[in-house]
Design a protein around this nucleic acid. Sequence first.
DNA 1: CCACTAACCTGTAGGC
DNA 2: TGCCTACAGGTTAGTG
Length: 288
Amino acid sequence: MPELPEVETVVKGLEPFVAGAKIKQVKTNRKNLRFDFPRNFISTLVGQEITSISRRAKYLIFALGNEKNLLSHLGMSGNFTILDVEADISEIKHLHVEFLLNDKQGKSFRLIYTDPRRFGFMDIFTHQKDCQFLKNLGVEPFGNLFNAQYMANIFKNKRTPIKTALLDQTIIAGLGNIYVCEALWQAKIHPKTSVNMLVDEQGQALLRLEKLTIAIRTILNAAIKAGGSTLNDFHSVKGQSGYFQHNFDVYGREDELCNRKNCGAKISKISQSGRSTFFCPSCQKQSI
DNA sequence: CCACTAACCTGTAGGC
DNA sequence: TGCCTACAGGTTAGTG
């Protein structure tokens, strides 16, 4: 479930606790999540200081004192929680990884990873360029490389639907189903639009593509500000829910009225490459 | 190389 | 209540 804003929320929530903390113990309660834990997972971590925590696309990266990094993807239902060392964790369901950490004052606390569906995974890497999960990722939506012309250069000879292209993590990294639907609604682009239709004969980005890049940043910014979205099982580190889901214009709103003034149309739901797409058939006209 | 599907899992919501 | 089905924020692996 977590898309970029949710992962960003987790990173910012964890940061004050884990940055500078030392890893005293690590316990994995099974041999795999989506994938097997790497060999030497525990021995690589124990004894190391977490020097910083950051985000790349939908991944969390814990940088360690030994120049290695712990990589974590939350999949659909993964989550980290900070707990008091005295807290009873015996009844916690789907608890797969337990970290015992010491803060700078030497005080112990726990960081736990829960994940009912186990679509998440963890790995260890040294350099991003050698990490199989990171090396093929596209640009960050908030990075300098992301702009309409970057998209135009990729899109000019492609005929894939824009919805599918925006979910492709090798083009833009961090967007998921919710925010793609929302961004396309904001930019008034039909989700089935062939991406080459957003580029002119000279390979220049059309205005609609400019608007789309702005919409993507706008929607992500708003969601981060709101602390991410909460559907079934995403909670930020401290346990409170994000509340961006109250601001969805199309996602999950099939048959409800479009939020645009004077539109009056009802939101449609279709399936594209196996995922649900929500859009307004009146505001987002099909141009191909 | 691209495009599509199935697969990985569990929980939940809705219909009957 | 319970049973059954469909579906869910993501990504990879396999097929054609």
